[in-house]
């Protein structure tokens, strides 16, 4: 109960911070149907963000990256099985978000995927649904749903350990622990002998290590070739989120460039 209260208070603080940061009229976390405004994301807390980013980089170099490298040395079937299992669990968040975004058909498909993979696919370790020809899985979360409903991103923030986010996406993440993630509910509040808090934490840690392991070279390459690594990561994160909210499988030029006129002005 106390934990819930803390989460609610934190959410309210973050939302109120956003309202203050957006009081110049640019970045209010409110229903904003004007796409031009939705696209603008201000780095309101850049100094703190850069400090957190540096902290995360230190943590990554000291702990996360070495673990991810070690994880890569595990036999392929173990890596694949782990990757499939943690991906399968994300269906539990994707399905309610499919419904909240009005995509009932996709919610049914993803429910089918979850059932098949959790049973025939041995607790999700084998992606049987993919082999059966289910459509490619597209993950959804509450931040995306808020975006799809027209809420602007608010300020860009870097969270300790978790990395880049926005006020909207962080608020969306709180929805997971406020009842929006059945996996969290079952393992933390489920009162059963099979699921518990450490299992939940392990699944989240494995998900993070799996992601880091998949991106060791890409991150190294990006860091090596960036003039300002922090700004590159911020740009890529925001572009990725915009694409996901718009369900863009390919780059949409309105999202990509914000102002197409910038290109049109440049003629040889």
């Amino acid at each position: 109960m106390f934990r819930k209260l803390v989460f609610i208070l934190l959410s309210l603080i973050i939302l109120s911070l956003n309202a203050n940061a957006g009081s110049d009229g640019e970045l209010v976390l409110k229903k904003n149907l004007n796409q031009k405004n939705v696209d603008k994301t201000k780095d309101c807390f850049e100094k703190i963000n850069r400090a957190t980013f540096a902290f995360n980089q230190g943590l990554d170099k000291a702990i996360i990256k070495p673990i991810a490298k070690g994880y890569r040395n595990l036999p392929d079937p173990i890596q694949k099985g782990t990757s499939n299992a943690v991906k399968n669990l994300t269906n539990l968040i994707t399905i309610p978000n499919n419904i909240l975004q009005g995509d009932i058909k996709l919610a049914f498909i993803n429910t089918g995927r979850l059932v098949v993979n959790s049973t025939v696919g041995l607790l999700g370790t084998i992606d049987v649904a993919n082999k059966m020809g289910f459509p490619k899985y597209e993950r959804e979360d509450y931040g995306q749903t808020l975006g799809a409903w027209g809420f602007g991103p608010g300020c860009y923030i870097v969270l300790p350990v978790l990395g880049p986010s926005t006020i909207r996406d962080t608020a969306g993440s709180f929805a997971n622990v406020l009842g929006g993630d059945p996996w969290y509910n079952a393992s933390i509040h489920g009162n059963n002998q099979y699921l518990n808090e450490s299992l939940f934490i392990t699944s989240k840690a494995l998900s993070g290590i799996n992601f880091r392991s998949d991106n060791i070279e890409s991150f190294d390459n990006l860091e090596k070739n960036s003039l300002d690594f922090y700004a590159s990561v911020r740009s890529l994160y925001l572009q990725d989120r915009e694409n996901k909210i718009k369900n863009n499988k390919r780059g949409n030029i309105d999202i990509l460039y914000k102002d197409e006129q910038d290109w049109e002005e440049i003629n040889n």
Partner: peptide
């Protein structure tokens, strides 16, 4: 879906 030019532009703007 991630534009190299836009990333570069935002990086330069940040500097």
């Amino acid at each position: 879906g991630l534009s190299l030019a836009r990333t570069q532009k935002e990086e330069f703007a940040s500097i």
